[in-house]
Amino acid sequence: MEPLDRRTLLASATAATGLAACGIQTRKETSMYGLIGKFTATDGNRDALMRILIDGVSGMPGCLSYIVASDPTDANAIWITEAWDSQESHSASLSMPIVQDAITKGRPMIAGMERIAETRPEGGHGLDT
């Protein structure tokens, strides 16, 4: 790697100063928030529970990604992977009427729930970073 010449160094410093002066952020001010969870449906109810989970996710402010997946090795297991613009957006979503309705409909079909991991998404396909 060649060292920067004086002209390139000055141009880079000037550009960085200009971006800062314009208020353009070069780094995220808040961290995204992610969850990976596993639901276990009662026998024979996995597909119905997945439909409820999928139907109940439209229009959630701050939700960047919400993936509902069946487990190919367990006929009752459902994996949910979520990415949010912030932990606050995720928390606020839990009080939305559409989410509360999904919880009410789905609760009788849930045999178990596990929070596998909380994550901090850093980027990737489909995420507006």
Results as ranks from 00 to 15, higher is better:
88 E>I: 11
22 C>D: 04
31 S>Q: 12
10 L>C: 08
41 A>F: 04
82 E>S: 07
59 G>K: 03
38 K>M: 10
13 A>M: 09
86 S>D: 06
117 A>Q: 08
33 Y>L: 05
22 C>A: 05
79 W>G: 12
64 L>F: 00
11 A>T: 13
129 T>Q: 14
55 D>G: 02
123 G>Q: 06
68 V>R: 13
66 Y>E: 11
22 C>L: 08
58 S>P: 09
93 S>T: 01
28 K>Y: 10
108 P>T: 00
11 A>P: 15
22 C>Y: 02
88 E>C: 12
84 W>I: 10
96 M>Y: 08
91 S>F: 07
93 S>C: 00
87 Q>M: 14
83 A>F: 02
18 G>W: 03
114 E>Y: 02
65 S>N: 04
10 L>F: 10
55 D>H: 03
117 A>P: 09
54 I>S: 07
15 A>P: 13
121 P>M: 04
32 M>T: 04
101 D>R: 10
119 T>F: 08
56 G>P: 15
82 E>K: 00
76 N>E: 13
20 A>M: 04
37 G>A: 12
35 L>P: 15
35 L>S: 11
12 S>C: 04
1 M>K: 14
25 Q>L: 11
40 T>L: 15
96 M>G: 09
10 L>A: 12
104 T>Q: 15
102 A>L: 06
24 I>R: 14
89 S>D: 13
119 T>S: 13
22 C>I: 03
119 T>V: 10
65 S>T: 01
14 T>L: 00
117 A>V: 05
71 D>K: 14
82 E>A: 03
20 A>S: 10
56 G>Y: 04
90 H>M: 07
63 C>R: 13
77 A>I: 04
52 I>W: 02
88 E>A: 15
4 L>M: 08
2 E>V: 00
60 M>G: 01
119 T>D: 12
121 P>N: 11
48 A>Q: 12
49 L>G: 04
54 I>Y: 01
111 A>I: 02
27 R>P: 14
72 P>C: 08
61 P>F: 02
35 L>H: 12
111 A>E: 09
98 I>K: 14
63 C>D: 07
76 N>G: 13
48 A>K: 07
15 A>D: 11
81 T>F: 00
1 M>I: 13
82 E>P: 12
106 G>M: 03
34 G>E: 02
69 A>L: 13
125 H>E: 14
4 L>T: 06
117 A>S: 07
37 G>T: 11
70 S>G: 10
75 A>W: 04
43 D>T: 02
81 T>D: 01
48 A>M: 06
3 P>E: 11
46 R>H: 09
113 M>T: 00
38 K>Y: 04
73 T>R: 05
10 L>Q: 14
20 A>G: 14
128 D>E: 15
28 K>P: 15
121 P>D: 08
36 I>E: 00
57 V>N: 07
18 G>K: 11
112 G>M: 03
106 G>C: 04
46 R>F: 03
77 A>M: 06
70 S>Y: 02
42 T>P: 05
94 L>K: 15
